[in-house]
Design a protein around this nucleic acid. Sequence first.
DNA 1: TGTACATCAGTGAACGCGCGTTCACTGATGTAC
DNA 2: TGTACATCAGTGAACGCGCGTTCACTGATGTAC
Lengths: 193, 193
Amino acid sequence: MARRTASEKAATHERILRHAARSFRKEGSAVGIGEVMKDLGLTHGGFYRHFASKDDLLVDAFSLALADVAERLEKAALKAPAGEQLRAIITTYLSVEHLAHPETWCALATLAPDMSRLPPSIRKRLESALVAYMERLLAFMPGRTEQERRGTFLVLISGMAGAIALIRVFAERETRERMLDIARGYYLKAFSA
Amino acid sequence: MARRTASEKAATHERILRHAARSFRKEGSAVGIGEVMKDLGLTHGGFYRHFASKDDLLVDAFSLALADVAERLEKAALKAPAGEQLRAIITTYLSVEHLAHPETWCALATLAPDMSRLPPSIRKRLESALVAYMERLLAFMPGRTEQERRGTFLVLISGMAGAIALIRVFAERETRERMLDIARGYYLKAFSA
DNA sequence: TGTACATCAGTGAACGCGCGTTCACTGATGTAC
DNA sequence: TGTACATCAGTGAACGCGCGTTCACTGATGTAC
């Protein structure tokens, strides 16, 4: 119960951010500040030493979540043999693992509607995070020009996010996996053939 | 302030449902019962003569929203000349109108994550509504077998919903319309050529 | 058809609860000399 | 290097507020005879 060193503060800031990025993806952006802090063994009052408001945390957490997924997908692509990189991105994105773990995977599939309801002033920061997401994966997208590759990213990622979001509404494991197979089959054929 | 006739009650029930289906799509499922009732000139207490709980309203409102959109898309298809029906569905779905009016258009693009967080007991009803959405448009989907047409619906509708959800994060009209053109171009080429 | 009574749609106060945010306080850290 | 003081990370009580839900009440509707 006293002042912390600068590096301790930075570590706490990051812990709040990382945990919020998971909680919002898992349970939605209605998760309270009190709950996030409590999960970390902290009290709610201290939150405002780290973020100006909940909206401020939301934007940063959404941005971190997007960067996190971009990194995961990039790693999956880089691990794949040459020519199989886009295939790796698609099978990683449309996986049972992704379906079952919203808290560590794509924020677009869980939070896109919440993102679009944030105040416009703050949404600009989210747009940057989305552009960064795209930039990170652009090299793996098919297309002759950069414009084409951007278009491919838009259609492919938003399409797969929509598929994950829809499939998650269904409860039965069997139904979900059948739908996932259909979607994966389509995107592999349409984008990586 | 007294008992109403059976048909008055039914009318009120429907007014609540229809308005909720709009409000949830526009502002998210966190919109309160009090607000929905107040918008209709009613008080919050009467709500429970019509619905057992807010979750109960959520499921019914989501289902109505889905049925509403299925009908709009079906009408768009039926108005189109033979051979242009799928094209009509795609251009209607990926329109500036849809982008700008979440309250009257596809609930998947605005509420899919909220749907998947509903209690499993209640989610079954939503699954039926989604299946009904599919059935209604199945005849317009390309594919040799019904299985294929179901697969096409899954990929097409979830993909377009994901595109709308992503594009709505961006604030600038010009950016949005450019992205919308790219998505529309893709889906027309991939599904309706 | 009229009468007596049960039902219940809608009202508005009240319930407990959790939310985001503020603030006085603590005591260790950071800084100026 | 030591000292004196300002800073501030984190605590926990308190703020106003809105939420979902309950309930006693009202009076017109529905129903049994």
